[in-house]
Design a protein around this nucleic acid. Sequence first.
RNA 1: GAGGGCAUAGCUCAGUUGGUUAGAGCGACAGUUUGUGGCACUGUAGGUCGUGGGUUCGAAACCCAUUGCUCUCCCCA
Length: 457
Amino acid sequence: MAKTKASLPQGTRDFSADVVRKRNYIFNTIKNVFELYGFAPLETPAMENLETLMGKYGEEGDKLIFKILNNGLDNISKHEQIKNDFEKILAGKNTTGITERALRYDLTIPFARYVAMNYGQLTFPFKRYQIQPVWRADRPQRGRYREFYQCDADVVGSNSLLNEVELVNIYATVFNKLGIDVEIKINNRKILAALAELCGGNDKMIDITVAIDKLDKIGIEKVKEELQQKGLQENQIASIEQYLNINGTNNEKLNAIKKLFHSVEIGKQGINEIEYVLNYPLSNIHSSLSIDFTLARGLNYYTGIIFEIKAKNVQMGSIGGGGRYNDLTGLFGVPNIPGVGISFGVDRIYDVMEELKLFPEAIAGGAKILFFNLGEEESKLAFTLMQQLRNKNIACEIYPEQTKFDKQFKYADKKQIPYAVIIGSKELAENNCVLKNLQSGEQQTLLHNDLLLQTFH
RNA sequence: GAGGGCAUAGCUCAGUUGGUUAGAGCGACAGUUUGUGGCACUGUAGGUCGUGGGUUCGAAACCCAUUGCUCUCCCCA
């Protein structure tokens, strides 16, 4: 067989031991909080039927779905059919004759598919969390990959704003545990709808939200330019500018927006919902929860309150986001199941924690003790003692080859194993062993039972 | 989809207007040292200079093509 050059598909990564441990630390923290709030785990397949995914993420999104080529395309008896199907592909259309499956693009649509398939069996309100990789055929760049993890928690079958309150508290709890100082930004699609209504451009809502979402990136002038290009009138743009200029404390912002939307029903609704969440009792996170009327979020299925998480003290895009959607399962023939969900961006959270040096030392992991291999009989005794320590839940390993000290010490060094147990011919004869602390260099001779009573850290 | 940058040892990189046998540091391996590591010293291995073509007496260097990686924009997480 020809030798293959070792390489990785673009936008994917291997994770070495210390990176995996740090990532697991993040995953476990998030997962434990999800469980603490009564969410149940769900896993769905890496691949879905293509038709499940197509048309759910907009025109751009469809292009970014990884499609899986069907097997058996070289079947002679289907030659003509397959050629015809391929003509459709060349014309830019998808066909099940060539590809009928695709890798999942996010966790929300598969979840909606799952709820639609199982709604008869589920207990509503249904709360699930899901931590799995997703794939996008996007051009990779900084902080953006073709394979990455999403950590989602969603509640479906409930209109109550108490869910939003819970999700905000999940955000606050997780980032508090991780030690990341964050600003939880909150807005409401209803307020954005009201803005569109006020500016006489109801059908322009998406254009408006896309444009104002870029405010802090490109500045007010560029936003106005873009709005102009989208065909908005001067006075409409002026209203939007007035809206964007609202600032101050949460209360000041609310007062200002109320004046602006005093006659727009949907706007008042949106404001009331935000006030409800902000004023919910016993919530200890108000300091970091702030209204941001420029927050829009890309996904168009959001209909109510929306969230986005920004890490303080570091230059990084959002590390989480979410919001309320009215009718996601309607896409799969099961209408009237409202929901609200949030997502954590683990890859960016990792980058933030690395930059701010927030990972605790304790997650280093690995073996605590290396048993030296100094001969056949010696290693049999070492093995016996090692198994007894493992039974006490102490991680250890034995050097598999009989070799000189130098090599075994260096192995322990490289793997940052803090202790070595040395059993050579002398210890074998005297029925004891040497325990050496590799950091301090101190060592002591111990009876076997005394070794088992030691604590290692 | 649009536009930049990069490609030399396992890793990070040097390599002079084109000139003999392409270097350094780190790492690996071995030895000094067969019962005590991190340090030091000595030595060894490791290269189709991304690939293909061209210019030239001569190409790692110049030209063309190609592949891969990377970054920015669009968009998104």
